Simulated scan of single mutants.
Amino acid sequence: MAKITLRVNGASRSLDADPQMPLLYALRNDLELKGPRFGCGKGQCGACSVLVDGKVVRSCSTPMERVAGKSVTTLEGLGSSAKPSVVQQAFIDEQAAQCGYCSNGMVVAATALLKENPHPSDQQIREALAHNLCRCGTHVRIVKAVQRAAQQLA
């Protein structure tokens, strides 16, 4: 065990954790943040995505030691039910979730895309979301939600 300090959603947090423990476990179990979800456990589905220093990271395959001293933003840090982010609101407005399991990863990836490229093409949106699996088939609505968010941020 080691004392690992990081910023989570703007607040400094120190945890006694195994340096090899996946970040996802600390977020969900220790910090009780339920946005990032356990999907595949191999970093391939995107359900566990978070932003680390503004970049999309798979928290299920990222050890705690790799995020020490860094800024981690989860879905909860992007907005709240009372004041959702522009991307979150666009997903709500476009009804871009069916089961909702992939929504965390989609919203996180879309947020990162729009910070880097505020006017993405449809192809760029699809490429940015390509590593997030959705089995419900709401991809068309998800792309529309990202387009809506981009228009609102313009």
Rank of each mutant, 00 (worst) to 15 (best):
R66Y: 08
S85C: 13
M106D: 04
Q124Y: 00
S121T: 15
Q88A: 06
Y101V: 08
L75I: 15
A130V: 05
M21V: 14
C48S: 09
H119Y: 01
A112T: 09
R7C: 08
T62P: 14
G79H: 09
M21R: 15
R141P: 15
N9T: 14
C48H: 08
C45G: 08
M106A: 04
G43R: 04
K55T: 13
A2M: 12
M64H: 02
E65K: 14
E32D: 10
S81Q: 05
R66W: 10
G54N: 12
P22V: 15
G54S: 14
C99P: 15
S81D: 13
Y101C: 13
L78S: 11
P63C: 05
C99R: 08
R37K: 15
P22D: 08
S14G: 09
A2H: 03
A154R: 02
N29A: 10
L78Q: 10
S12C: 06
N104H: 02
Q89A: 07
E32I: 11
P36W: 12
T73R: 14
I4T: 13
C48E: 07
A149T: 01
G105R: 04
Q147M: 05
L27F: 09
E32T: 12
A154Q: 03
N29W: 07
G35H: 11
S12M: 06
T73G: 07
S80Y: 01
Q124R: 10
A90P: 14
M1L: 12
L33G: 05
G137K: 02
S121V: 06
V56S: 03
A68Y: 06
I142D: 06
A154Y: 00
A112S: 06
A97L: 14
A128W: 00
S12W: 05
K42N: 13
A11C: 03
T62G: 07
A26Q: 00
G10K: 05
L133K: 02
E127Q: 13
V50S: 10
K144R: 05
A112V: 05
S121D: 03
I92R: 02
Q44S: 01
S14Q: 12
S80E: 01
K34G: 01
C40T: 03
N132L: 01
G79T: 02
G69I: 10
V107N: 12
Q124F: 01
V143W: 08
L6C: 12
Q123P: 04
G137A: 07
C136M: 04
L113M: 15
E116K: 14
L31Q: 10
R141N: 15
K3V: 06
S81I: 13
Q152G: 11
Q147L: 09
L31N: 03
G100D: 01
V146H: 00
C134T: 07
A11N: 10
G46M: 08
T138A: 14
L31D: 07
